Amino acid sequence: MDVIADDAKAGFRRIEVLTGPGRRRRWSDEEKARIVAETLQPGATVTAVARRWDVCPQQVWGWRRQAREGHLALVGNGRVPPFVPIVPASSLSVSSKGDEAARQTTKSATSTPCIEIQLAGAMVRVAAGTDGALLTEVLRAIRASAA
Results as ranks from 00 to 15, higher is better:
residue 1 M to R: 11
residue 3 V to P: 01
residue 4 I to E: 12
residue 4 I to K: 10
residue 6 D to S: 13
residue 7 D to F: 08
residue 8 A to W: 12
residue 8 A to D: 14
residue 8 A to K: 08
residue 11 G to C: 05
residue 12 F to H: 11
residue 15 I to M: 11
residue 15 I to A: 14
residue 16 E to Y: 08
residue 17 V to W: 05
residue 18 L to Y: 08
residue 20 G to W: 06
residue 24 R to Y: 05
residue 24 R to F: 05
residue 27 W to H: 13
residue 28 S to A: 12
residue 34 R to T: 06
residue 37 A to L: 04
residue 38 E to Q: 13
residue 38 E to K: 04
residue 38 E to R: 06
residue 38 E to F: 00
residue 40 L to C: 04
residue 41 Q to P: 01
residue 41 Q to F: 01
residue 42 P to Q: 08
residue 42 P to R: 07
residue 42 P to L: 07
residue 45 T to S: 01
residue 45 T to D: 00
residue 47 T to Y: 01
residue 51 R to L: 05
residue 51 R to V: 04
residue 52 R to A: 15
residue 54 D to Y: 03
residue 57 P to H: 05
residue 62 G to Q: 11
residue 62 G to C: 04
residue 62 G to A: 12
residue 62 G to E: 10
residue 63 W to C: 03
residue 67 A to W: 05
residue 68 R to H: 06
residue 68 R to T: 00
residue 70 G to K: 05
residue 70 G to F: 03
residue 71 H to Y: 02
residue 71 H to K: 15
residue 71 H to A: 13
residue 73 A to P: 09
residue 76 G to W: 02
residue 77 N to F: 05
residue 79 R to N: 07
residue 79 R to F: 01
residue 79 R to I: 01
residue 80 V to P: 02
residue 80 V to Y: 02
residue 80 V to I: 13
residue 81 P to L: 10
residue 82 P to F: 03
residue 82 P to M: 06
residue 82 P to C: 03
residue 83 F to L: 15
residue 83 F to K: 11
residue 83 F to P: 08
residue 84 V to R: 11
residue 85 P to G: 07
residue 85 P to H: 08
residue 86 I to A: 14
residue 87 V to C: 07
residue 89 A to V: 14
residue 90 S to V: 09
residue 91 S to K: 11
residue 94 V to I: 13
residue 94 V to C: 13
residue 95 S to M: 09
residue 97 K to W: 07
residue 99 D to L: 05
residue 101 A to Y: 10
residue 103 R to K: 14
residue 103 R to Q: 14
residue 106 T to K: 12
residue 106 T to W: 09
residue 107 K to F: 07
residue 108 S to A: 13
residue 109 A to R: 14
residue 109 A to W: 12
residue 110 T to R: 15
residue 112 T to F: 07
residue 117 I to F: 07
residue 119 L to Y: 03
residue 120 A to T: 07
residue 120 A to G: 04
residue 121 G to I: 11
residue 121 G to W: 12
residue 122 A to R: 15
residue 125 R to Y: 12
residue 126 V to N: 09
residue 126 V to S: 08
residue 126 V to L: 12
residue 130 T to N: 03
residue 131 D to P: 06
residue 131 D to C: 13
residue 138 V to N: 04
residue 138 V to H: 03
residue 138 V to R: 02
residue 142 I to T: 09
residue 143 R to T: 14
residue 143 R to K: 14
residue 144 A to F: 06
residue 146 A to P: 04
residue 147 A to F: 02
residue 147 A to T: 08
